[in-house]
């Protein structure tokens, strides 16, 4: 068991190492380096030399990679190009803002998803299922920027209930953020809920048709007791991994949603740093977002292992 957990953690670390290589090599191979793309037409003579010096681009690539990687391991991402600030100081408030947004969406989304998934599975092909399933298909297929734009149009412009865009400074405190995040949270949790609800639905349906549940029905176990004691614990276990993947996938979607609502989180920083051609920040973001993905998946795997006694003795799948 312990070996299995350590192996899983090691795999995650290897993945992150490859990510760091990919981002480093990617930035290296693509035309233009940080200085020429940042300075654009002024990239010649003394300005270019100074920029190279400042970023340490005058030393060979592998040495730079090692220096950079050592810094990252110690939690130091180096300097941003545009603001002339430490990247850590740029990232700090953004990470906090995105965490507020993400945790609010997850806290709201997961219970609703469980509820909707269970309802649709127990009343399969009846009216509640048809209505909810149609809704979930719509909200998971339509792009984030469309549902967010429609939300703004309906709630903020036509009904005038809430402000349409977030106007808070990047360093705002959580109490300042909360009233502003209602619409973004609705937009994000709508998609997340839809994905998870469909997963839970099919998982519950699968368990409901299994032999031991049929047996329980034949033995005359009361319906609700059977649902809560036998069906749900077995149905929700496989859902953990997919929930993790869905959350990780949302990291990409959150970029778009944050732009639509003008929310000062990591997602908007992605766009800003790429528009400003601030490659050191882009590299830092790639590592951070990839780490979140790896960690979420790791937690999901470990949870599944802990909750499922049968898996303990097995090898890691795949």
């Amino acid at each position: 068991m312990l070996i299995l957990v350590l192996k899983r953690i090691l795999l995650g670390l290897i993945t992150l190492f490859i990510v760091s290589l990919i981002t480093f090599v990617g930035v290296e191979v693509l035309p233009g380096d940080a200085c020429t793309t940042y300075l654009e037409r002024e990239a010649y003579g003394a300005a270019l030399e100074a920029c190279y010096k400042r970023l340490g681009l005058d030393i060979p690539a592998y040495e730079r990679y090692v220096n950079w990687a050592v810094g990252v391991i110690q939690g130091d991402f180096g300097y941003s190009l545009s603001g002339e600030m430490k990247i850590n100081d740029v990232l700090g408030p953004r990470v906090k803002n995105s965490l507020v947004l993400a945790s609010a969406s997850i806290l709201i989304g997961i219970p609703i998803a469980l509820l909707l998934g269970i309802i649709t599975a127990l009343w399969r092909d009846k009216l509640p299922d048809i209505i909810i399933s149609t809704f979930t298909i719509f909200s998971m297929t339509i792009p984030e920027f469309i549902s967010a734009t429609l939300l703004i149009l309906i709630v903020a412009i036509w009904l005038e209930w809430l402000p349409g865009i977030v106007i808070v400074p990047t360093g705002a405190s959580i109490s300042e953020l909360l009233p502003n995040i209602i619409l973004p949270v609705i937009a994000i949790s709508m998609i997340m809920t839809a994905h998870m609800a469909r997963m839970v639905r099919s998982s519950v349906i699968q368990v409901m048709s299994s032999d031991y549940v049929q047996m329980a029905i034949l033995k005359g176990v009361p319906y609700w007791k059977m649902v809560f004691k036998h069906v749900l614990p077995n149905a929700l276990l496989p859902a953990i991994n997919v929930v993790a993947l869905t959350i990780a996938w949302l990291l990409g979607g959150v970029v778009v949603t944050e732009v639509v609502f003008n929310y000062p989180g990591l997602g908007r920083l992605v766009i800003e740093s790429i528009s400003n051609r601030d490659l050191p920040v882009v590299q830092a973001l790639a590592i951070i977002l990839a780490s979140i993905y790896v960690v979420i998946n790791l937690i999901a795997d470990l949870l599944t292992l802990m909750l499922n006694p049968r898996l303990k003795s097995l090898q890691i799948k795949k």
């Binding site: 993945t15 992150l16 490859i18 990510v19 290589l21 990919i22 981002t23 990617g26 930035v27 693509l30 990780a248 990291l251 990409g252 970029v255 778009v256 992605v270 766009i271 790429i274 882009v282 973001l285 790639a286 977002l289 990839a290 993905y293 790896v294």
Partner: peptide
Amino acid sequence: AFLSIPWILAMLL
């Protein structure tokens, strides 16, 4: 490793 980098970041870059 590629799966763990958000597609949008890579595409934008």
